[in-house]
Structures are given as structure tokens and as C-alpha cells.
Design a protein around this nucleic acid. Structure first.
Length: 271
DNA sequence: CGACCCGCCTGACCGC
DNA sequence: TGCGGTCAGGCGGGTC
């Protein structure tokens, strides 16, 4: 489910409820996520959540002495429940953190590809070490990406989805960005000229920015922490549009499989 | 090192 | 209604 815009939507949705509040009871209902949820996380009882940041598709909750790393994997979701009496248990609710303002943060993840890990405040987080720059920062530029693509022969779409090259774009936004940039997903990455890389970088920024303002993309069951859907699905131009007319030229959108992932493009507009 | 492939899970959906 | 097959928004690790 969650790519960068969805994770950003979650961050914005949970922060007002959690930042400044102190952690109360923590319940680990099922620790068997991608990595086991550490039992030690229960020792955070009484600690204040001082800040919540997002890096790529990761959320980081800071206390004075620790940080909690959360990844939503493919199907993870976080919801905020007003107070304990409003809590309705759902299947796949694996982790609940109650706050001293009565709010509960519930982590829900049917496929359990996500994870929740605990680090000392000053520790380095291995998952974050090899990530590309934030895509909405100035560091993520045409110069950066053009240099990085040098010598890379993989299809450009696979590279866009590789978090060491471009952060935050999963399958949906990689497809949409390449369409917006007019670049065929199978092009070898090092075959793009500087102008095309510039268009691609601009497209990635535009697609992610727009999706964030729409609260992400709700395809199956993604909702914001308040229970609202994300509205970017209405603006998808190629993803999931196999056979539908291209918004620009009416040519039917094609679907191929690239790197084991569904890939959608307009054969006319994307060269 | 780079490119590719697989496994991890469950649920939804489709065709028969 | 049931059943098997397919697919799904991510990531790390293994192999060649």
C-alpha cells in the first residue's frame, strides 16, 4: 500500500495526537511482523513522544532516549482511536500504544511485511543508511540522478523504484512519474539524456507532491489515520488503466511485467 | 559491483 | 457456493 505520500499522510495524521503526549500501556498482540517487535518497546512506558519524522517510507517516533522505527510494508496502516472505549479490535491489529491523552495508536497489517523496531536515540538506523536523498528536497536534482544513472543498464522503472536511487516512489508513483515525463519504462537507465532525467526528476516531485495534497492513493483499503480515503486514485493516468485510452493521445494503455512488477505505460507518449 | 529472482504473508478477485 | 489460480502499493538477501 504505502508509498511516500501515504506515509506522509500517516505522519501528518498521527502527529497531532501523539507528539507531546506520554506513552502509556503498550500491547503487542502479535509480534510476528517482518522482524519481531522487540519486547523492550514496553519499557517506553511514561516516555514522551517528542517528534515524529518521516524519512523515505519510514516513520521515526522520537522519545528522549529512544526512537521507534515503523515501516508499513505492503499492507500496513496506522489509525488513531479517540479513547479506549472507542476501540474496536480488528483482525490484524498487531500493536497498540495508548497515550496519556487517552488516544490509542493502532498498527494494522494483514500481510505483516511491515515492522516496528526500537533504537537508542543516538544509534544509526541501518535501513536509512543507503537511501537516496528525499525526493522533495533540492538535493534530489537532475544533476544528482543523471550522475547516479551512469553505467546503469537496468530498466529506468526498476531504478526509480530502487530506494538507493530514488526514494519514496513505489509501483504506482513510478508508473505515473514515467508517464508524466514521457519516458518508456523499459529504457536502460544510462540511456536517458540529461533533458530526460530533468523531466523525470520534475515528474517525480510533481506526482509525489500532488499525491500528498490528495492524502495519498486509496486503491484497496488505504485510509488516513482518521479513517478518510486518499483521493489521488482519481488522478491515476496509467496505473491500473490497461486498455483505457491515454489521457493525452487516446492510445490504449499497455500493461507489461517488468522486474516482476505490473508496469503500465502509453506506447505512443512514452519513448 | 550490478542485475535479477525469490520469499515473506493474507486477502480480494476472477473464471470455472 | 466453492475452489484454485493470480495478483497486490515493499524490501532484504541470495545467487550468478
Amino acid at each position: 500500500m504505502p508509498e511516500l505520500p501515504e506515509v506522509e499522510t500517516v505522519r501528518a495524521g498521527i502527529s497531532p495526537h501523539l507528539v507531546g503526549a506520554k506513552i502509556g500501556a503498550i500491547e503487542i498482540r502479535n509480534d510476528r511482523l517482518r522482524y519481531p517487535i522487540p519486547k523492550a518497546i514496553e519499557s517506553l512506558y511514561g516516555a514522551e513522544i517528542m517528534a515524529i519524522e518521516r524519512r523515505a517510507k519510514y516513520l521515526i517516533l522520537y522519545t528522549e532516549k529512544h526512537k521507534i522505527l515503523i515501516h508499513l510494508g505492503m499492507s500496513g496502516a496506522i489509525r488513531i482511536v479517540e479513547n479506549e472505549s472507542d476501540l474496536e479490535w480488528q483482525k490484524h491489529d498487531h500493536f497498540i500504544m495508548q497515550m496519556d491523552n487517552d488516544r490509542l495508536m493502532v498498527y494494522h497489517d494483514p500481510r505483516r511485511f511491515g515492522f516496528i523496531l526500537l533504537y537508542d536515540r543516538e544509534a544509526t538506523i541501518p535501513f536509512l543508511e543507503k537511501l537516496a536523498p528525499e525526493p522533495l528536497s533540492d538535493t534530489f536534482s537532475a544533476d544528482y540522478l543523471f550522475a547516479k544513472l551512469n553505467g546503469r543498464t537496468r530498466p529506468i522503472k526498476s531504478v526509480v523504484m530502487d530506494q538507493a536511487f530514488v526514494v519514496g516512489a513505489g509501483n504506482i508513483y513510478a508508473n505515473e512519474s514515467l508517464f508524466m515525463a514521457g519516458i518508456h519504462p523499459e529504457r536502460p537507465a544510462n540511456n536517458l539524456n540529461r533533458e530526460e532525467v530533468k523531466r523525470l526528476v520534475s515528474a517525480i516531485k510533481a506526482v509525489l507532491t500532488r499525491a500528498i495534497t490528495q492524502g495519498g492513493t486509496t486503491l484497496k483499503d488505504f485510509t488516513t489515520p482518521d479513517g478518510h480515503p486518499g483521493y489521488f486514485a482519481q488522478e491515476l493516468l496509467v496505473y491500473g488503466q490497461k486498455g483505457q485510452p491515454c489521457a493525452l493521445c487516446q492510445t490504449p494503455i499497455e500493461r507489461i511485467v517488468l522486474g516482476n512488477r505490473a508496469t503500465y505505460f502509453c506506447p505512443q507518449c512514452q519513448k
